[in-house]
Design a protein around this nucleic acid. Structure first.
Lengths: 165, 165
DNA sequence: CGCGAAAATATTACTTTGAATATATTCCAA
DNA sequence: TTGGAATATATTCAAAGTAATATTTTCGCG
């Protein structure tokens, strides 16, 4: 990325502290889209669950909790609501009967598709402030952070292979 | 940053969606440090407030809510607790009597100093997985995102200049 | 001026979250 | 093979968050 390095010699310690920069960038970037979601009657957590299962993922509750950044008890209750509303269904694993797989229903898929369009549109809007290579670099940086922090590995292991019919 | 571009052609839509990458990077990067904080008896929100005021910032409640990513009512209650515990104090602005400035007490400053050391140590640990230029590039990307999204501007306007003695 | 709209913070009432725990199942070592 | 540790999910309940609203003060305009 070839943007001039800025020195925020401002005041607070937080002005150049990695965890704050990440949290703030995430919050500020998401703000507008999250407002759209709520206006259309969806909570952020519901959206994250739907999006993580889109288009055809089948994940255990635990794996889903990780991608969605939700604690397991929070997720379980969200799943209750969404299952009741016909957006997804739970399938008990036959191999390990402790595990529960989650997948979208056709109805859930349809709703998600619509929101994914909104999400992509919003993403384009944000990245439109950057050149193509800059935009690529932003995602690149985030991908490598996640890799180094050993995030993705754990998750892909949990993706259902063939179990749930 | 010169890390090879990885294609997560995995499965889910979210695997290359900016807002998810940001939220996940933030969560995963913070995980360990936030656990440290809780073990030492501090909530994340309390830490954010302390850190935002360190070393000698004087911010209004509203400005503080923004940097800390807290809703104003949430912050007000946290400030009640922290003021009660002697970590900070509120000073009513004389220019605009609606505004309330917040600043650390010496005791709050001392506690924060200690935690800031932990935070910096943790940050080094995370960035140690990268070369110097890569690490710089990570922060660079986040700074430019925040700039383009028009974050910092609003905040610096709210920093107290000379009002609270 | 004076009054209605806007702004900053506090308060209230309700909802959501999550740490701790329970339950069910699987894994593993003796 | 069996009993204890580990794992996956569900449940519970106290704590934290927040939308809506109240309160106080300032601003802008006729």
């Amino acid at each position: 990325m070839t943007v001039e390095p800025k020195k925020y010699a401002e005041g607070s310690f937080t002005d150049d502290y990695l965890l704050f920069l990440l949290a703030q960038a995430s919050a500020v970037a998401s703000e507008a889209f999250h407002a759209e979601l709520r206006n259309s009657g969806l909570r952020v957590s519901t959206w994250r669950i739907l999006a993580s299962l889109y288009p055809e993922e089948v994940l255990t509750v635990g794996a889903l909790a990780q991608t969605c950044l939700l604690k397991q008890p929070t997720l379980t209750r969200a799943l209750d609501r969404m299952e009741r509303d016909g957006l997804l269904k739970r399938v008990h694993s036959t191999k390990d009967r402790r595990s529960v797989f989650v997948k979208l229903t056709p109805q859930g898929h349809e709703l998600t598709q619509e929101k994914v369009h909104m999400a992509k549109s919003h993403e384009r809007r944000i990245l439109s402030g950057f050149t193509k290579p800059q935009a690529a670099e932003i995602k690149n940086v985030l991908h490598s952070l996640l890799d180094r922090l050993g995030h993705r590995k754990k998750l892909t292991e949990k993706r259902a292979e063939t179990d749930p019919l």
